[in-house]
Structure formats: structure tokens, C-alpha cells
Amino acid sequence: MMRAQALLAAGAAAVTVLVAGAAAQTTRQQTTAKDLRPVSSFQSVADQQARSIALFEEAGKVLHHPRCVNCHPATERPLQSDAMRPHQPLVVRGADGHGVPGMTCNTCHHTANFDAARVPGHPQWHLAPASMAWEGRTLGEICAQIKDPNRNGGKDMAALLHHMAEDSLVGWGWSPGPGREPAPGTQASFGALLRAWADAGAHCPPS
């Protein structure tokens, strides 16, 4: 009897795992389309505000992607992997986004990806400031956040667009090395979407 109960419990656990796995799969397919629509495909949206919002939502596929959110975490601890698990070992943002004395990001993350060990790298590897936490935020919230110089590190629109389109640490999101899905599209197509969003008034999605 006890054996039967144990088997049942094990079976139920396995089913739970399968269902959870399927749910995760669905979410991933929805949120990580591989390409970005070109800016030209939004010309047909006549209303400027609606076009601006649609452009931002397309760029939002990148903003919501694990390659971006993992280092824009809601807590002081980054996430890692496509499954967005808490970073192992435990590391924290620290005062300047580069970790704490004795355990900075570049203790382990060196100047380039080290594919043999699947450890990503970049000379400036660090976390976004807490004011730029995107994890769990809607695109409307992220839009308001990135436009706000009080939260975005004092960037005006030109500086913000430059950061998104040119910054090489942002660009790492498209060259993450094996075992990590790149952000959708290219950094150039992402930058073009945001430039067109800004040109159309930089309107934010309502939520």
C-alpha cells in the first residue's frame, strides 16, 4: 500500500514537471521570436501614436528577452540562462553594478565569452542599476522607465538611442555564445525600431 502511494506521488510529481515544462515552452515561444519586424512594415499604421507604440512593442521583444532581463533584475541578484534562474553562485549588484569587494562580476566574467566553459564575458560586464530593473515589468512600465532621466542614468533621448543601438555590452545580447539564445533580430534592427519609435513621438504602451 505504501509502495503504491509512493509510486502515485512520484507519478504526480512527474506530471507536474511535464505540465510546468510545457507551460515554460509556450511562454518561451511567445516571448522569444527570433526576428524583428523591419521599421518599414509599420508604415501602414496611419496614426502616429499607434505606430510609435507598435514600434516600441516590437522592440519590446528584445527588452523582455532573457539576454536583457537577466542583467536588469528586480532584486540585487542577477538571473542567468534562457530559463532566467537566479545566478549561481549568489552575486549581487553592489554599489556600482559591478558586484562587491572580493566578488566582482569580472572575478568570473572576463573580457570575452569563454565558450569552453560557457562563461559569458565582456570588458564591462555588470548589472543595470536598480532604477532600471525590468524583470516582471510591463512594456509600458519599461518604456516610462527608460525615458526618465532620473532613472536611466541621466540620458536624453539621443543618449538613450545610442546606448541601445551602439553599446557593446548591450550588443553582447546578440552574441551570447553557445547555450544561450541570442536576442531577436540584430542590434541594428533593434536600434532602428527605437529610433523610429522616438521619431514618431516616443509614445508608451498603456500597460
Partner: peptide
């Protein structure tokens, strides 16, 4: 770097050393 580390300072600096 930290002359008088707290328990938290120590834990955060050392927890990558298993």
C-alpha cells in the same frame, strides 16, 4: 578592500568559493 568586514560582506565575497 574592506578592513572590518561584516558577516554579510564575508558571505558575499566568499560564497563563490565552495
Amino acid at each position: 578592500q574592506v578592513k572590518k568586514p561584516s558577516d554579510r560582506d564575508i558571505d558575499l565575497a566568499m560564497n563563490g568559493n565552495v
